[in-house]
Amino acid sequence: MSTPLSVTRIGHACQLIDIGGIRVLTDPWFTQTAVYYQGEPVAATVGSLGRVDAVVVSHEHYDHCDLDALVAGGFDLGTPLIGPGTVATIARGKGFRDVRTVEAWEAATVGDLTVTATPGEHGVHEVTFVIQAHGRTIFFGGDSLRVPELDTIPDRFGPVDLAILPTNGLCVRPMDLRQVVMDAEEAAGLTAALRPAMAVPHHYAFHSGRLGDRMITKADQDPRHYADAVARLAPEVDVRLALPGTVVTVP
């Protein structure tokens, strides 16, 4: 029998992954500013998370690296935090005591958990992650663009149980609509390459506020576009559109 695996979307790219009792928090974001809106309820407070065995952070953008909220919420700063060098520097400055720096194809272990950084591409330095424990494998895509090397993950790591992918195709208006996040079609193409048993989209409800959406960012906020694209490109993959706070169990 497979080790139980579930994921609970806290909001945006903040997910709580549970692999047989090993609990991993991804890309924390619990607060908002004048140009960073979750666009959906945040399903937990820092204090209500319970035990967390590791935190993985893909890059330093505020909506993925809200370390101030963790500190203010009384989070255990001895919890291992895993991320690229840019994130590691910030985390140490905030008082995190067990910071593990990983760049693409480097791994860190926390007990039975192995977290391998995989390539990413975004407006700043970013990595994505393969998270493994007890024979289960999860790919976490942060808010990266589609990077060709990610197609090799099944060959490198074996079958993928769960893929968590961004889908909003975020573009930056002042940069001539430069795209910095994979869109629904690109995410579906990566899903077809990864062949996970289940896929969960994220990073789609976010917006920049009424003025910011007109002047700063442009994005697709409908995850059904991803589900439709996967149905065409990888119909064997089970796509779950999860509201914040909903526990999704992976077979």
Rank of each mutant, 00 (worst) to 15 (best):
C171D: 01
F157L: 14
G73R: 06
L241Q: 03
L162M: 11
A104S: 15
F129V: 01
G189Y: 02
E126T: 06
G209Y: 07
T79G: 09
A133K: 05
A234E: 00
L16S: 05
M1D: 14
A13T: 15
D76E: 10
V110A: 09
G47F: 09
I164A: 08
I131T: 04
A197I: 07
T33C: 07
D151W: 01
H59E: 14
A44T: 13
V200D: 05
L77Y: 06
S48H: 06
E60S: 09
R23N: 06
K218N: 02
D161C: 10
P201I: 14
G142T: 09
R156S: 09
G74D: 09
L81A: 04
D183T: 08
A91K: 00
A242S: 07
L145W: 07
L113R: 13
D161Q: 03
Y62N: 01
V239M: 08
V124N: 12
P159L: 06
G209F: 12
P201Y: 12
L49F: 12
A72V: 13
L25T: 11
G141H: 07
L170G: 02
M215I: 14
T89R: 01
E106K: 10
D63F: 14
S48F: 08
V180H: 00
P154T: 04
V110D: 04
L67F: 10
V200A: 15
P4S: 14
V237C: 06
R51Q: 13
K94A: 06
M1R: 11
Q32R: 15
L25A: 14
G169L: 07
A107K: 11
C65G: 02
T114D: 05
R146G: 03
K94G: 08
P41L: 11
P80M: 01
A188T: 04
D66V: 08
A234G: 06
L16F: 09
C65I: 07
V239I: 06
T128L: 04
